[in-house]
Each structure stands twice: as structure tokens, then as C-alpha cells.
């Protein structure tokens, strides 16, 4: 019996099981909304928060492990959104083809950009992606056959597995996508790829000497980041049912950077928390504040100041905060450190 319960504990402790539990908890939110406990607009905000968490997860892999920044997140996400709309509504090929297109095309473009810019110096990726994002934004405004220009592309809730979706069922799909992305990210980080990425993080030169092809792994991390962005773009479109070029500007990309920084590098739950702080807190809380709530530009200052303050004083982000709290609760200040240890060993 003790054997079985030990087994049960081990299963419950498995990260994938925890991700599933986390997803199951999120799945209860639409019920809260339909029973009137939570406003429907809050449900929408939370849905978008989870979508941004997916994008941020990709950027976290890129930034956290290869130290690269992409400023093209908004462009790739927008490309995913417009592709999904084009494939589903203009070509009539349905949900799955739409998602597939939103996954493949941005990843391919991302790979091309990565091959060109990563050969020189890490920072060139930021500049190159910033430019690609500007080019894509211009495309969204000009290529009317594809995007309807500034008038905006309208879409509809998709039919998934023969079921016509609505707002709540799209929320379920977003949660499923998020849980899958969390599992995939966890597997990448803890697999052979993850070891190479860890090695690269501690010393690129040493990793290179050990036979890690740094360029390949950086490209891989960047490809994953663009793929998540494409997926999130498609989900965004299906959740909002429309897309306007002005959505996909530089400040969205910067907000995603802020989510990663605030949530904590290399932390999966932290990224979700970061998305909540950067996207949902301004929407749900700051706007409601008396006196300063109506101030224009408040969300920008909130994100910007958080980025600067977190980098200056709390480099670990929210993850550092939870480690600290856990240490206080269990009276074992080294709990956080010992949990880190296997990773650190793998990195050396």
C-alpha cells in the first residue's frame, strides 16, 4: 500500500500532472463567468492573458537560455493571426489548417532572419527582428487582399472537431494550448536540448568546446519562440474574431519582454504570472483606480518601470519572490537554492 501511495505521490509531483491540474483549474473560469460571479469581460482579459503567456513562454526560452532578445514578437504574432484568418475565412480550410499555417510560416521566416542575423553578434537578432516586425506591420497595413488593411480583418469562432465554438469553448482551447506549450517547454528544457542550452548559458565558448553547436541551438530557441508567437496569434484571432494592424506594434513586443522579465527567466509558471501582471493588472486593476486610473499612458509606464526595477533590483523576477516566500514558510532559506542545484550542476 505504501508502495502505491508513494507511486501516487510521484505521479502527482510529476510536472506534467501539475500542468494538467493548473489547466483544470483554469477551465473552471468560464463557469464562474457564466454563473455571474465574474464579469465576462474579465474572462476575455484572462483569455488574452493566457495567450500572451504562450508567446512569453517562447521568448522566455529564447531570452532565458540563449540570452537573445526578439523584438519581432508582435510581427510574428500578427502574421499568425492574419494567416489563421486567411486560411479559415478566405480559403475555407478550417481550424486545423489555419493553426498549422500560423505555426509554420512565421517559424520559417523566423529561421531565415535568424540564419542571417545570428552569425554576427547576439544583439543583431534584436535589431533584425525589430526591422522584420516593421516590415510585417507595413505589410499588414498595405496588403489589403490578405489583411483588409487598416479597416481590419474580421473572422469568426472556428468549428473544432465538428463543434461550433463560442467564447467559453475558445477559452478551453486556449487553456489546452497553454498546457501543451508548458509541457513542451518543460520537455525541451529538461531534455538533451535543454542541457545544451544550459551549457550555452553558463559559457558559450565552453559549450562550443564541448561540441555544442551554439548557432544551431540559438536558432532552435528562436524558432520555438516564433512558433509560439504564431500559435498565439492564431488563438488571438479566434478569440477576438478580428485583427487590426495597429495591434501588432513594437509596444506589444516590448510588453512580452516585460512579461518574461517580470515573471522571471527560465520559469514556466513565472511566465504565466508575468503575463498576468503586465497584461491583466493594468486592464483589471489600474484602470479602476480612482484619480490616476484615467491617466493616458499609465500601462506603458507600469510595464516600463517594472522592467527597469526588476532588472535593477530583482533579477529573478516573480520566481525569485516565490522562492523567497517558500523559504520563509518552510524556514529553510536554502530550499530555493537546493532546488536550483541540479540545474546548476547540469550547467557546469
Amino acid at each position: 500500500m505504501s508502495n502505491a501511495s508513494a507511486m501516487a505521490v510521484r505521479v502527482a509531483r510529476h510536472p506534467h500532472v501539475r500542468f494538467l491540474v493548473f489547466g483544470a483549474v483554469l477551465m473552471t473560469l468560464p463557469a464562474l463567468a457564466s454563473s455571474g460571479i465574474m464579469m465576462t469581460s474579465t474572462l476575455s482579459t484572462l483569455g488574452f492573458t493566457l495567450i500572451y503567456a504562450i508567446v512569453a513562454m517562447g521568448l522566455n526560452l529564447l531570452l532565458g537560455y540563449s540570452g537573445l532578445i526578439s523584438l519581432g514578437t508582435a510581427g510574428f504574432m500578427g502574421l499568425g493571426a492574419y494567416l489563421a484568418a486567411y486560411v479559415q475565412d478566405d480559403l475555407g480550410l478550417g481550424f486545423w489548417v489555419a493553426v498549422l499555417a500560423a505555426l509554420i510560416v512565421p517559424t520559417f521566416i523566423g529561421l531565415l532572419v535568424g540564419v542571417v542575423s545570428l552569425r554576427v553578434r547576439s544583439i543583431y537578432l534584436a535589431i533584425a527582428t525589430l526591422t522584420i516586425s516593421e516590415i510585417l506591420l507595413k505589410t499588414f497595413e498595405q496588403a489589403e487582399w490578405f489583411t483588409r488593411g487598416t479597416a481590419g480583418k474580421q473572422s469568426s469562432y472556428p468549428v473544432v472537431l465538428g463543434i461550433q465554438t463560442d467564447r467559453s469553448s475558445m477559452f478551453f482551447i486556449i487553456v489546452v494550448a497553454l498546457v501543451l506549450v508548458m509541457m513542451l517547454t518543460h520537455n525541451i528544457v529538461h531534455g538533451q536540448l535543454g542541457r545544451a542550452l544550459h551549457a550555452m548559458r553558463s559559457s558559450e565558448v565552453a559549450a562550443q568546446a564541448m561540441g555544442v553547436n551554439v548557432l544551431t541551438y540559438k536558432l532552435f530557441a528562436f524558432a520555438v519562440a516564433t512558433m509560439y508567437a504564431g500559435l498565439a496569434g492564431a488563438l488571438y484571432l479566434f478569440f477576438l474574431k478580428s485583427s487590426y494592424p495597429s495591434t501588432w506594434n513594437l509596444f506589444l513586443s516590448l510588453n512580452v519582454v516585460a512579461m518574461v522579465v517580470v515573471g522571471g527567466l527560465r520559469s514556466i509558471y513565472g511566465t504565466v504570472a508575468g503575463a498576468f501582471v503586465i497584461f491583466a493588472v493594468p486592464e483589471l486593476i489600474l484602470k479602476e483606480l480612482p484619480v490616476i486610473g484615467d491617466t493616458p499612458g499609465l500601462p506603458y509606464i507600469f510595464s516600463g518601470v517594472l522592467i527597469v526595477v526588476v532588472i535593477m533590483f530583482f533579477p529573478q523576477g516573480l520566481r525569485g519572490l516565490t522562492d523567497l516566500l517558500r523559504g520563509l514558510v518552510t524556514r529553510r532559506p536554502s530550499a530555493a537554492a537546493s532546488e536550483q542545484a541540479p540545474e546548476e550542476v547540469a550547467a557546469r
Binding site: S122, G297, Y300, V308, I311
Partner: peptide, 24 residues
């Protein structure tokens, strides 16, 4: 003590700070 990428991110944060401050 911040990494090179940390400094870059800080200037990205500054973009948002100034963008938000200007209308205020």
C-alpha cells in the same frame, strides 16, 4: 553587474516609460 542583455532590456523598458510619460 547586469548582463549585456539585461542592459538592453532596460533601455527597452525606458522606451515604454518615456512613451507613457509624454502624454501625461
Amino acid at each position: 553587474r547586469a548582463t549585456a542583455v539585461g542592459k538592453e532590456i532596460v533601455t527597452l523598458g525606458l522606451i515604454m516609460v518615456f512613451l507613457g510619460l509624454a502624454p501625461i
